[in-house]
């Protein structure tokens, strides 16, 4: 197994609150890994630590052999890690295509090259037909996919997805799952932060479970769902399958 990203003893405190507590895990190249846990488990904090949006209190994040825990987000992106935002953030005055172009400027200065890359990114998430639309004309699932396309334009090796399927109907989520599978088949490594267990089971080859900031389980999806600790964290103490 080759680890593209290693998280080692990562902790983050906000004042007295420990949001992430001594978490370690590794991401295998070319696989989809899911980071799950109930509300307030520290998933998004953990995600932001990896993406460079926050600095950890202690611990290390190693990407492809380089420590990145103190790197600013733009540098983390330029090293090959792209992220999406849980609350979709389209650039309001720019078309769908222009939104998708921005990421390409992290590796090229040619507008033509950025445009063709943006088309490819939009195509891979099924938005090519709406390239010239304004972002406020997009539906929620389309906006979520635009976030993914924007990230893809940076040509990442690791894609961090923050709740891309939250708020989607099952049929819409199934479409997203297809897109993610195809991306992973193309060799992209994906870390998925998700709340919805069922989708994670379908798409992830490995699952890391956080609870109260600490890792309580890790393994293949079917192992994890059978874990009594995981069931307890999601469903409350006293519940046994």
């Amino acid at each position: 197994m080759t680890a593209l990203l290693e998280v080692k003893n990562l902790s983050k405190s906000f004042g007295g609150l420990v949001a992430v507590n001594n978490v370690s895990f590794a991401l295998e190249a070319g696989r989809i890994t899911a980071l799950i846990g109930p509300n307030g488990a520290g998933k998004t904090t953990c995600f932001n630590l990896v993406a460079g949006a926050m600095r950890p209190t202690s611990g290390q994040v190693v990407f492809d052999g380089h420590p990145i825990e103190n790197a600013p987000p733009e540098l983390v992106c330029r090293m090959g890690i792209a992220r999406t935002f849980q609350i979709v953030r389209p650039m309001r005055d720019m078309s769908v295509l222009e939104n998708a172009m921005v990421g390409a400027f992290s590796w090229t200065r040619s507008v033509d090259e950025a445009r063709s890359t943006a088309y490819e990114s939009l195509e891979s998430v099924g938005l090519a037909g709406k390239a010239n639309a304004r972002t406020d004309q997009l539906t929620l699932p389309d906006r979520k996919m635009l976030e993914t396309a924007k990230a893809l334009s940076t040509r990442p090796r690791l894609l961090l997805l923050d709740e891309v399927m939250a708020g989607l109907r099952p049929t819409e989520a199934a479409g997203v799952v297809r897109v993610l599978r195809k991306l992973a088949e193309g060799g992209l490594t994906i870390l998925l932060v998700e709340h919805v267990m069922r989708i994670v089971m379908e798409v992830a080859s490995r699952v890391v479970v956080l609870h109260h900031g600490a890792k309580i389980a890790e393994g293949r999806p079917e192992e994890v769902v059978a874990d009594p600790m995981v069931l307890e964290s999601y469903l409350g103490a006293g519940f046994h399958a």
Binding site: A82, R89, V102
Partner: peptide, 20 residues
């Protein structure tokens, strides 16, 4: 492109590699 992205949302632009 880079400046307008930065104008609209600096955090999002930085996450896309813009050295704001």
């Amino acid at each position: 492109y880079v400046w307008r992205a930065m104008r609209d949302d600096e955090q999002a632009a930085r996450a896309l590699g813009v050295r704001a």
